[in-house]
Design a protein around this nucleic acid. Sequence first.
DNA 1: TCTGGGGTCCTAGGACCC
DNA 2: TCTGGGGTCCTAGGACCC
Length: 416
Amino acid sequence: MTPPLIGLLDCNNFFVSCERLFRPDLIGKPVLVLSSNDGCVVARSQEVKDIGVSMGVPYFQIKDIIQKHDITVFSSHFALYRDLSRRVFSVMRSELEVVEQYSIDEAFFRIEGEPLEVAFRVKLAVEKAVGIPVSVGVAPTKTLAKVANDRAKKSAGIHVLDTVIWRERAKKVPLAQIWGVGGKSELRYKQHGLQSVADLLQADPARVTKLFGIGGWRLQQELAGISVLSLQQKHDPQRSVMSSRSFPKTTTERSVLADAVSYHIRHAAADLRAQAQLAARLTVTIRPNRHGDFILRGGTKEVVLAVPTDDTFVLLEVAKNILFELYEAGVPYKKAGVVLSGLIPAGGGEQSLFDQAELGRHNSILAVVDRLNKREGKEVLLIGSRLSTHKWQALAEVCSPAYTTRWREIVTVNAK
DNA sequence: TCTGGGGTCCTAGGACCC
DNA sequence: TCTGGGGTCCTAGGACCC
């Protein structure tokens, strides 16, 4: 029996397509979406790519190009993108047996049946139900499905990789183009004379493992058409929950950092409760500007919690102590964040060491907070904050309305 | 002046033990 | 007393992805 083929469905210019869904007048016109703080470009329409605007370029550097080409600009609106993302995957799951969500806008799936027919069917189903254009690549491994998807984007939106043709082309494909090979590994491969896919395929596997570790070996296998990155049938629980943000301006004040860290704890802990998980470890990070004299200052500290928890009150206390350890006076901080990791499912009876009465009281308060904040679609009830001026909060100057996630901003359709 | 946020996985080095 | 190697566990940080 031949091993099953793997498909990869990827939404085209996802954030841009989401914005266009509610602004069909922008189809065919140049559109881009910015990161938080309106910092840099995170999504580009084909027209913007053709103009030559790169991914990740700072907004302030391209303001003249935007004006010259009349590019429409959006601040990012993640609640909208997440909502549409959920719809895409729900359609996929109704059409396919095995679907593994890989990111907000792409998923691997198992091909069962004639590859072209399956690819065409799922593409059509998603586009019809959600309205977001997608591309599908099909190949024997995940890494090659990525390659196939790239080709699909440059043609009719569907591409089934022919492994014979792939091997012939391998000499002309630089390793740098392959999924998982970033700038650093490209350099290391080059230093050992490996530049193209063909170079790696011809190298001795033992040598590849020795020089490039398990990652190098996997890459070699995958590119040879031997699947070593398997499809995950069931949706694995998340391994960590993170919340972090850059400030519009740097700050040297400990109180501002404390306010930011407490915000991140509230959000990460609420996220944890929504997933019904408990965290065994808490990490706090504070960083100065990435581009300046203080680049080496700042730091990260991880603490193992006495008892795994999702309790905002407990986490706030621990986080505050970590922050005070990390903080250095006089350093201009630009970013703060927290990570909750070592996640385990909630309800495992780990609470026996706690004062049950206090825990119960926290739980019922937090349940009310979660419900209210969820209903309002934003944080209206805060715990452990002095409700300060939020000097560190993000800017979003050109945000589209919350079309699908907040009732007050729902799109209006005028019947004629 | 202005350069994202949320993830995963891997590795290196220290502490400790046998 | 001195010597060594190898495990494991932990944490910080790197690399990469979207």
